[in-house]
Simulated assay, not measured.
Amino acid sequence: MVIYNYHPASGELLSTGRADDNPLAPEEPIVPGYATPTAPPADVTGNSIAVYRDASGIPPQNWEAGSWTVTPDYRSVPLYRTADGSAFEFGEEYGGIGDLPAFLTDEPRPSPAHVWTADEWVLDEALETEQLAAAARAQRDALLEEADQLIAPLMDGFVLGELTLEEEARLKALSQYRKALRAITTQVGFPRTINWPVKPE
């Protein structure tokens, strides 16, 4: 008699073999634990797998307590946490076989401004605006720091009255540039459309 060995934790097919002879009842070969004489379904396709489980969803040691069922198999599919869109690694929380738990999805998060709502990623425009504003301010602050470093040596010459006409013009241009940088948050389209000032050469 051909038998089908299944995994004691997942219930998936491991291998085929033959039942042991039963000297007391030759017509009833001995089927070892976690094996069944019932063949798994042959029409399993796509991201699915046949597993041998009992009514409670656990692979039974005694084959008579279970049966083959077809269930999703996500082990080769990238999964993401619905809380923050981070990549999920298979483990104790979920091994990849069976329906996806509520905290996972196979849909990647489109952007950091998307939130998981009603089984899909939905753009949170308020969050997106907040993130764009924070990124723009960070960029502005970096440009201001760079401008400060360019202005500092010119200011010494200005206080001492030692600037050339060319240096005075550069100091004025850099000061105007710095002023324009500080004003980007007051632009009508901020933070979605920003007219960034051009740094003087």
Rank of each mutant, 00 (worst) to 15 (best):
A113W: 02
L143S: 01
A55S: 14
P191Q: 00
G95F: 05
A35V: 03
W116A: 03
P29G: 09
A135I: 02
L79E: 09
I49R: 01
P40K: 00
R137V: 15
R140E: 03
D84S: 08
G161S: 08
A133S: 13
R140G: 03
P8L: 09
I58W: 07
R53K: 14
V159W: 08
I58Y: 08
T185A: 10
T69A: 13
G46L: 06
E92H: 06
E130Q: 15
V51Q: 04
F190K: 00
A126D: 13
V77D: 08
L13F: 08
P8W: 03
P37G: 07
D106I: 02
Y6W: 08
P191E: 03
N62A: 15
T69M: 11
T45Y: 00
Y4F: 15
R182P: 00
G95N: 15
E146G: 02
L123F: 03
L160V: 06
N22A: 08
V2A: 11
P59F: 02
D20P: 03
R137A: 11
A83V: 12
Q139D: 14
P40H: 09
A147M: 00
A50C: 10
T38D: 15
L14Y: 04
K199P: 01
I194T: 01
E92Q: 12
E201Y: 02
L174T: 02
N5W: 11
Q139H: 09
L163P: 02
T16C: 06
G46D: 04
T193I: 11
T164D: 08
T186L: 12
V51K: 01
V77P: 00
H7I: 05
R140D: 02
E12V: 10
A133M: 02
T185L: 01
L123H: 05
T117L: 15
A65K: 14
L144E: 01
P23Y: 09
P8I: 07
G46C: 04
D106Q: 11
E168H: 06
D156T: 13
S67G: 14
R75Y: 11
T36W: 04
T186F: 10
V2P: 14
G66T: 05
V198I: 12
Q149P: 00
P108I: 03
P101G: 04
R75F: 06
A25V: 09
T105M: 07
W116I: 02
R81G: 05
P200Y: 00
G161T: 07
T105R: 05
P23K: 08
L104P: 06
L79K: 05
S111T: 13
L13K: 01
A126H: 04
A169P: 08
L150D: 04
D20F: 14
